[in-house]
Amino acid sequence: MPAPELPIRVADGRDDADRGDGLEQGFPARSPRPIRPGPSPVFRTPPIDIFEEPGGLVLLADLPGCSEDSVSIELESNLLTLRAEASRPVPEGAGPMLEEAPPGPFQRTFILSDEVDRSRISAELKHGVLRLRLPKAERAKPRRIEIRGMDGEG
């Protein structure tokens, strides 16, 4: 059975690493490399998982230190942009000695295909993990067409 098409593509300048994992499937050929982060690394890229559910896709993003108020999810044409700001958990006066987690805001952009029902995208944040539900559009779901038996009628 061929792998089902995936209606989301991660487009954050990591395209080279994405080759061959099937994520390129199911997308229109337009804009092969649409997004490049700027020259200065201002944002942190949150690590994500994506898995399939019967109704669509679920995207989990690690956003430690972020509250609901600080997370924004923007959808513009087929680009979904996730932004979040973590609050510093220590007093201002404390001087950093080591910062493996840099203080900048999180940002990551994804390309959605038409298979995602944009009107029903929902998100929740718990313990610093964002759960984004990307339901499949009705017309993208596999449909069973019933065949009525005509025996006995003709």
Binding site: L60, D62, L63, P64, G65, P89, V90, P91, G93, A94, G95, P96, M97, L98, E99, E100, A101, K126, H127, G128, V129
Partner: peptide, 19 residues
């Protein structure tokens, strides 16, 4: 990922453990 801070009479250690 760990961050460490020095605030004079105490240290702060923070660790990112989402989920």
């Amino acid at each position: 990922a760990i961050n460490l801070y020095d605030e004079g009479d105490r240290y702060y250690l923070t660790a990112e453990l989402p989920g």
